[in-house]
Design a protein around this nucleic acid. Structure first.
Length: 802
RNA sequence: GCCCAGGUGGCGGAAUUGGUAGACGCGCAGGACUUAAAAUCCUGUUCCAGCAAUGGAGUGCGGGUUCGAUUCCCGCCCUGGGCACCA
């Protein structure tokens, strides 16, 4: 017998898997299909790091387990290769993104193949490949043609020193990541997708097997709120200010109305009046504040000014002043009815000496705002509220809405926090937006037959001072002919958010070699939705929401017959180093390569799985990896041991069947750590007891998803048919795992005073008899009188002594 | 501030329809093999007292329910994640 040499063995099997096309999937075989997917990586210069392994390793083990359970498993891998880092690298070094990306992909492919995962490399993709982004552009056109994509002025982050637009990730606490200058906002005309149209549909999670936490995060992000629009007419009746509120029960408390600085009516109100100057000054302050202070802790100062206008409170008929205030956003109607029962309104009123009036108290007795330092936000009984006085405010709430609807001053409304998806990026390394601007015809979509709009490679990357993408520097790209009238025209030079590229890649994998269509209808409808999607929780509100949205749109346009893309979702935990996220800037990135080199891929993968529960992650520490390396050696020795020397055949059989049960159940729950612990326990037992050929075969199968190379080698040694990946997952015999004799604890007054061995179905009398023969138990029983005894078969025997 | 998740030996972590807390692994201590070291194997290892049998304490803190609580309830503290003027 030879010592197990991981590196050689792993290389040998990786080559064999490749030469025998073991991982090539027949997509025409839909029966028992299983689409297993991980969130595809960004091919950065950092290469694969431990976080990738922690995601991909267990995900591959899951795929291998499903395959042995008889599924036709499709487990593809690709690259999310558009994005900012490649472009920044190009600005710094002059290396074109296409070149650095290609190199990074090559290297990562090599690393991934050393991992030994069962990816089908005949069906891969990269989002920066024209064959792929052609269809990303096609999706843009479908949204455009169906009124789901539109252009609008919107602010971008602008660094006045670098003279460039920054992505949100490049802005840190309001300052430029690179030069530390203060960021300002600049208005540019930008493209949006109407995701807000799908807010309600996106809130339907009924069919999804997703983590509760993720659903909750998405729900909060979408932010549905049900309330009421209330009309406040101007005192001269020239205009109506409609306020959105979730608290119409406080209408009698409203003593002023606040309007957002961005609201179009503000200018109309103050134009040519003595309030114009106030508004200008306040807005200037607010504009600064929105960037730095609004996002940081200290930015809770309420500022605003009076607009010289009054509205009539429809409930009290009182003349009510209109203020502009920084804390009012363009959410709902952009106008808020303000009152003493909201902390922000209360603070604002105190600052600007606006009268306040309570209408709710604990018991319905009148209380005075003068006696309070803050708003009364609790629920209670209404007073001074017309016919609603004396009612519980929550019970009154729907009645107030009804009443306002009756007198035609309000109506029930629903609002969402979810805003439309801004997809324009003033960046080079992304999919060009397929739109052409013609002086005569205006905005013209590129013909589908003319796709892809190719991203040119000879581009000057130096940042421009007008906030446009580097593509604006490329005349060959920028100038074109109008597809409609044939006259000189210009292309859109912005590119799409990379999240657009990643919002449909799962649809492309099964059709990745298809030329004339984004995906094959039959294959897509058969293979999707994805059965298992594994990736980081950081994508809960971005990628996962966008992917659901695009999927729903394509469904509603009739391209696919399923509405949700991912049936089951699992998030792996995060791996930190010394308590911090691994990042290049912190210099705490740990590379998997040295460990793979030293211990092999199987050991490294199992160590990551053994660290703790898959969904919890943890802090990286290599101190325990030797334990897994020892285990692999022990396993190998056991498989190579003499099968004739078995001490206790029954115990072997029983433990083996228990092991099958435990490992199966643990893998089903993705509790890989305890599955490995159970295998270790069995190997320790069998090392002492001896083992037979059948046990060796079974444990090899059980470890196959977790350590595929080792298992393949063991199968070979055992003269079993190649490949272990195609062997059937073992089943246990329930009759063989029953213990006839079991050990239970004996408690006296809740404390364990001994343990007894009883038959598994022993009667209470039998158990009591045996317990009373225990000397130590008797010692405590004799201290008083037994007033009660408790027997839970198989669990515990308890006495209460007084 | 709000919403989640979690706090268990020296360390990573097991065990929850309430039933012997600490599986498995790391580390550590002692021993075997060796001229020696590494590797390997064996024994022990929650803390305190004891040669031991055994006793006491113990799952972030303080209460409660129960024969019995890591598990359930109430009130705190801490850590991690998400959201953050959304009316």
């Amino acid at each position: 017998m030879q010592k197990y040499s991981a590196r050689e063995v792993e290389k040998k099997w990786q080559e064999k898997w490749k030469s025998t096309n073991l991982h090539t999937v027949d997509l025409k075989d839909f029966k028992d299909k299983y689409y297993n997917l991980v969130m595809f990586p960004y091919p950065s210069g950092d290469k694969l790091h431990i976080g990738h392994w922690y995601n991909f390793g267990p995900a591959d083990s899951w795929a291998r387990y499903m395959r042995m359970k008889g599924k036709n498993v499709f487990s593809p891998m690709g690259f999310d290769s558009f994005g900012l880092p490649a472009e920044n690298y190009a600005i710094k070094t002059g290396v074109p993104p296409a070149e650095s990306t290609k190199k990074n992909i090559e290297y990562m492919k090599k690393q991934l193949s050393e991992m030994g995962a069962m990816y089908d490399w005949n069906k891969t993709l990269a989002t920066s490949d024209p064959d792929y982004y052609k269809w990303t552009q096609w999706i843009f056109l479908q949204l455009y043609k169906n009124d789901m994509a539109y252009k609008k002025e919107a602010p971008v982050n602008w660094c006045p020193s670098c003279k460039t637009v920054l992505a949100n990730e490049q802005v840190q606490d309001g300052y430029c990541e690179r030069c530390q200058s203060e960021i300002s906002k600049k208005d540019l005309s930008q493209w949006f997708f109407k995701i807000s149209n799908y807010a309600e549909k996106l809130l339907d999670y009924d069919e999804l097997d997703w983590p509760e936490k993720t659903i909750l995060m998405q729900k909060n992000w979408i932010g549905k709120s049900e309330g009421c629009d209330i009309d406040f007419p101007l005192e001269d009746n020239s205009e109506i200010l409609t306020c959105y509120t979730t608290r119409p029960d406080t209408i009698f408390s409203v003593t002023f109305v606040v309007i957002s600085p961005e609201h179009p009516l503000v200018d109309e109100f103050v134009k040519g009046t003595r309030y114009e100057e106030d508004v200008r000054k306040v807005r200037k302050k607010i504009n600064k504040q929105t960037l730095i202070e609004r996002t940081s802790e200290g930015g809770k100062d309420k500022i605003g000014c009076f607009l010289g206008k009054y509205v009539i409170n429809p409930a009290t008929k009182e003349k009510t002043p209109v203020y502009l205030a920084n804390f009012v956003l363009m959410y709902g109607t952009g106008v808020v009815m303000a009152n003493a029962h909201d902390q922000r309104d209360f603070e604002f009123a105190r600052k600007y000496n606006i009268p306040l009036k309570f209408v709710i108290s604990e018991n319905g007795k009148k209380i005075d705002s003068k006696d309070f330092e803050g708003a009364y936000t609790a629920d209670g009984i209404l007073f001074d509220s017309g016919k609603f006085s004396g009612m519980n405010n929550r019970e009154a709430l729907p009645k107030v809405i009804k009443w306002l609807e009756g007198i035609n001053y309000g109506r029930a409304t629903v609002n969402y926090k979810l805003r439309d998806w801004l997809i324009s990026r003033q960046r080079y390394w992304g999919a060009p937006i397929p739109i052409i601007y013609c002086d005569k015809c205006g905005e013209v979509p590129v013909e589908e037959d003319d796709l892809p709009v190719i991203l040119p490679d000879n581009v000057d990357f130096s940042p421009r001072s007008d906030g446009k993408s580097p593509l604006a520097n490329h005349e060959g790209f920028k100038y074109c002919k109008c597809p409609k009238c044939g006259r000189d025209a210009e292309r859109e030079v912005d590119t799409m958010d990379t999240f657009v590229c990643s919002s449909w890649y799962f649809l492309r994998y099964p059709s990745s070699n298809l030329k004339n269509k984004p995906f094959d209808n039959k294959i897509t409808n058969e293979w999707l939705p994805v059965d298992m999607y594994i990736g980081g929780p950081e994508h809960a509100c971005m990628h996962l929401l966008y992917a659901r949205f695009i999927n729903m749109v394509l469904h509603d346009l009739g391209y696919i017959n399923f509405t949700e893309p991912f049936d089951k979702l699992v998030h792996q935990g995060m791996i930190t180093k010394d308590g911090a996220k691994m990042s290049k800037s912190k210099g705490n990135v740990v590379s998997p390569d040295e460990f793979v080199e030293k211990y092999g891929s199987d050991v490294f993968r199992m160590y990551l799985m053994f660290m703790g529960p898959f969904t919890e992650g943890g802090d990286w520490n290599d101190s325990g990896i030797t334990g897994i390396a020892r285990f692999v050696d022990k396993f190998w020795n056991l498989v190579n041991s003499d099968p004739r020397k078995v001490k206790d055949k029954n115990a072997l059989k029983k433990n083996l069947n228990k092991l099958i049960k435990k490992v199966t159940e643990d893998i089903e729950k993705m509790h890989f750590n305890t599955a490995i612990a159970a295998l270790m326990e069995f190997v320790n037992f069998a090392g002492k007891n001896g083992t037979d050929k059948n046990s060796k075969k079974v444990i090899t199968k059980l470890i196959a998803p977790l350590a595929p190379h080792l298992a393949e080698e063991c199968f070979d040694v055992l003269d079993e048919k190649y490949s272990v990946a195609d062997s059937k997952w073992p089943e246990y015999d329930p009759k063989l795992i029953v213990d006839e004799l079991i050990t239970i604890g004996v408690q006296v007054n809740g404390k364990v005073r001994g343990e007894i061995e009883v038959a598994k179905d022993a009667s209470k009398e039998e158990a009591l008899e045996i317990a009373k023969s225990d000397e130590n138990v008797m010692k405590y029983l004799s201290k008083g009188k037994i007033v009660k005894d408790i027997y839970v078969p198989g669990k515990i025997l308890g006495f209460v002594v007084k």
